[in-house]
Design a protein around this nucleic acid. Structure first.
Length: 810
RNA sequence: GGGGGCGUAGCCCAACGGCAGAGGCAGAGGACUUAAAAUCCUCACAGUGUGGGUUCGAAUCCCACCGCCCCUACCA
């Protein structure tokens, strides 16, 4: 008859390929639209089509798939789509380096990855696929842009970009290399240049984005977003600068105004040039130029000694009328607050440091405690040297000062955010064209909705020539003004790719819908996303932008909820065998294909889930995958032969162990603890092999059915194979998740641990329902316990039901 | 500088405040084999980074320190 022991010709890739084919034929993973079931929208972050699925993709996607399968078996209709985040710089670089067109490069990568995704055997609904670089998709990026524009949420402003003066092009952050900031391509030192760019007013939603009450996201992500938004309350105060006019500063410490002994502007501050006195001009100009050349990293290196330059100008402290010198210094950033500060060395460490270096006066305005030994004092204390504030605590002094400033008209209460508006312009080819037309008459005119999409010309010359690629394409560039019909030109910037990923979860619902970004009827059925999974690295950009987008969509009447994803889980990172992050330069990159070919995709996915808790990541172990592969073969051997194994186990335990398994796996999959559910399945398999042949007929079959059912979300191909081997009809993936009977899990007899003063002295077997009194009696009766208690008084006996008795003696 | 995470067997990891071990890898012995691989069976191995504290009882809670990792950083 059939072979016992694992089949000699076990070939997981054949087995898996067969089921993948059948699943595709039967449409097993077409989305269940049965609205009598509760919905579950499961989403894993969409990959960039770099060419191949790497281990990181497997690590992100397969546990997410397991969880989606688990929900499906639990009676939910599940929508689990996948797509490609297909615009972006790598395609353009590949084009430049290898002369392949970005479209071709991207599409052939996608084709390749589609095959690999099929091989993964996940339950993705491939009919819902979205590719963001298709006009069908990016048309709606443009549509959103127009809506944002209408609402006043899109605006144009000069903003600095990294610019290579030789190539005459803007550079992305990663294209600026080395400590002296050179162009990656030609080695020319990069400069900052102001260009008009498009921005989205995400800051309008800053306060709402600080509200996380409607989502269950990891605390960590909330904290990161909160810090990123960086709301600070304080005041904006005007300082009159002699011969110039008022310059505003933002401060969180208006109470310390009397201690402002100098004034500092950022080197980029527009006032610097005007206020600088002729005799200081050379020095100031040199300083400003040097600051402009310095990288962000150097600028913000805290350990660096502070530098600055006196402009020759003076400002008037509005609190006391004192004349204070105005410096330009690069520790003040143009991008925060007003780009200028009042320096209060007595209460600010940075200002203290600067004051010491440039020998500027220091006045304490908060009385430090007597034992205070530091320099600047930032703590609580009564105000001193502060006129009408003297004696007040910090909070009250702040209030009083704000009131005073408002009365005088020299300042007001203000809130500042670290969060900036979202700069969406990119001076690149491979992205969504921004749908704006510049008319000499009418200025920036939005492309009429009916004219969308503004197509990205496919034959554009994208090689670096020193001009924005789209500018060189006359068919694209030259157009007519939608208002007057006169000659006009198109915007040649394209959009940030974060735009694509801000709303892709909506497009999945109806990827070919052409009357809106998504079909509202589909949205009604599926939105919002119930469970999102992805890496923590997207905590602040992508995950903030998509929240912003959803809020704007709500205000546009497109959706009726406030948050895009109810729950979020952040998986960790799968590391190389050496325990380091995988990277080409380290040479520790693992190619999943190699292991899929050898062990199959079930083994690979099981291994990745078995490594450790999903949120922690862990090192790759090429031998570890052999272990899970063995497990799969052993599991398979349960149904493919009838010889008993030589291991021995107690058949009477079968119902208890089966129920216990179901409970364990149910709980673990519900909470993303894949590693422990796999361990439980392994343990159970070992047990089943130990009783194989000793349990008869229907009881055995039933036990196997249950086992295979709970194995299914984790190892879908092997479970399906086993299901078929058992002679069951249909797919195991359509089975209902089994329940369990708590009563059957309870053991009849338990091992009661007997401790004396917390040390284990004996273990006795007792009936499970033993009373506290009996348990104590049993404990005292123990031969091994007696010597430790004899002659002493038992002061206390702690009883933990079903576990132990601890006798406290002394 | 700030925030977070993690330190348990040779390795990856389990353990509602209650017997430190569920599972796997590697290791040893045995079975099968002409032999090897594969497979099967069996076995051994740590007292939980260090030092305090709370508790009848601490890997688990609290404090400090050490080590590793991640994020963030002159935000006024």
């Amino acid at each position: 008859m059939s072979e016992t022991k694992p089949r000699k010709n076990y070939d997981p890739t054949v087995l898996e390929g067969r089921w993948q084919e059948r699943w595709a034929e039967s449409g097993l993973y077409e989305t269940d639209e049965d609205t009598s079931k509760p919905k579950h929208y499961a989403l894993t972050m969409l990959p960039y089509p770099s060419g191949d699925l790497h281990v990181g993709h497997w690590y992100a996607m397969t546990p997410s798939d397991t969880r989606a399968r688990f929900m499906r078996m639990n009676g939910y209709r599940v929508f689990f789509p996948i797509g490609f985040d297909a615009f972006g710089l790598p395609a353009e670089n590949a084009a430049i380096n290898r002369g392949i067109h970005p479209y071709k490069w991207t599409m052939s990568n996608i084709e390749n990855m589609r095959g690999q995704l099929r091989q993964m055997g996940a339950m993705f609904d491939l009919s819902a696929e979205v590719v963001t670089c298709t006009p069908e998709y990016y048309r709606w990026n443009q549509w959103f842009f127009l809506k944002f524009f209408e609402k006043g949420l899109a605006y144009r402003k000069e903003a600095p970009v990294d610019w290579c003066p030789k190539d005459q092009t803007t550079l992305a952050r990663e294209q600026v290399v080395g400590p002296d900031r050179r162009c990656e391509r030609c080695g020319t030192p990069v400069i900052k240049k102001n260009l008009p760019q498009w921005l989205f007013k995400i800051t309008d939603y800053a306060d709402e984005l600080l509200d996380f009450s409607k989502i269950e996201w990891p605390e960590r992500v909330e904290t990161l977003q909160r810090n990123w938004i960086g709301r600070s309350e304080g005041a904006e105060i005007e300082f009159e600068v002699e011969g110039y006019g008022p310059i505003g500063v933002f401060t969180t410490r208006p109470d310390t105004l009397f201690g402002a002994t100098f004034f500092v502007t950022s080197p980029e501050h527009p006032a610097v040039e005007e206020i600088t006195t002729p005799e200081r001009e050379d020095e100031v100009r040199a300083y400003v130029e040097k600051a402009a050349r310095m990288s962000e990293i150097d600028r913000t290196d805290v350990t660096r000694e502070k530098t600055g330059v006196f402009t020759g100008a003076y400002a008037i402290n509005p609190a006391n009328g004192e004349k204070i010198p105005v410096y330009a210094a690069d520790y003040v950033l143009m991008g925060y607050g007003t780009g200028a500060i009042m320096a209060v060395p007595g209460q600010d460490e940075r200002d203290w440091e600067f004051a010491e270096k440039y020998d500027l006066p220091i006045i304490r305005t908060v009385q430090p405690p007597e034992d205070f030994e530091g320099k600047a004092y930032t703590g609580e204390g009564p105000a001193i040297n502060s006129g009408f504030l003297d004696g007040l605590g910090v909070d009250e002094a702040k209030e009083r000062m704000i009131g005073h400033l408002e009365e005088e008209g020299t300042g007001r209460r203000a809130v500042t955010y670290r969060l900036h508006d979202w700069l969406i312009s990119r001076q690149r080819y491979w992205g969504t064209p921004i749908p704006i037309i510049y008319c000499p008459e009418h200025g920036a005119v939005p492309v009429p909705e009916g004219d969308l999409p503004v197509r990205l010309p496919e034959d554009a010359e994208f090689m670096p020539t020193g001009e924005s690629p789209l500018k060189l394409d006359p068919d694209f560039y030259n157009t007519e003004c939608p208002i007057c019909g006169g000659p006009a030109t198109r915007e040649t910037d394209t959009m940030d790719t974060f735009m694509d990923s801000s709303w892709y979860q909506y497009r999945y619902l109806s990827p070919h819908y052409d009357e809106g970004p998504f079909d509202p009827a589909r949205g009604e059925k599926w939105l919002p996303v119930d469970q999102y999974t992805g890496g923590i690295e997207h905590a602040v950009l992508h995950l903030l932008y998509t929240r912003f987008f959803t809020k704007v969509m709500r205000d546009l009447g497109l959706v009726d909820f406030d948050e895009p994803m109810r729950r979020l889980f952040n998986q960790g990172i799968i590391l190389g065998p050496d325990g380091n992050r995988m990277s080409k330069s380290r040479g520790n990159v693992v190619n999943p294909q190699e292991f899929v070919d050898l062990y199959g995709s079930d083994a690979l996915r099981l291994f990745l889930m078995f490594v450790g808790p999903w949120n922690e990541g862990g090192p790759w172990d090429s031998q570890g995958i052999g272990g899970v592969s063995r497990f799969l073969r052993r599991a398979l051997s349960l149904v493919t032969g009838d010889e008993a194994s030589s291991a021995q186990a107690d058949p009477a335990e079968l119902p208890r162990r089966t129920n216990r398994l179901v409970k364990k796996v149910t709980g673990d999959l519900g909470t993303f603890r894949f590693n422990t559910s796999i361990a439980a399945l392994m343990e159970h398999t070992n047990y089943l092999l130990g009783v194989k042949g000793a349990v008869a007929g229907e009881e055995w079959r039933e036990a196997l059915r249950t086992f295979v059912t709970v194995l299914a979300p984790l190892a879908p191909h092997h479970a399906e194979e086993m299901w078929a081997e058992l002679g069951e009809v249909g797919s195991v993936h359509e089975q209902a998740w089994p329940g369990y009977d708590e009563a059957l899990i309870v053991e009849e007899e338990i091992t009661l641990v007997v401790q004396v003063n917390g040390k284990v002295r004996d273990r006795v077997t007792v009936p499970a329902g033993i009373s506290e009194e009996d348990a104590r009696e049993q404990a005292l009766a123990s031969e091994r316990v007696r010597p430790h208690v004899e002659g002493k008084q038992v002061r206390k006996a702690v009883y933990v039901p079903g576990r132990l008795v601890n006798l406290v003696v002394g």
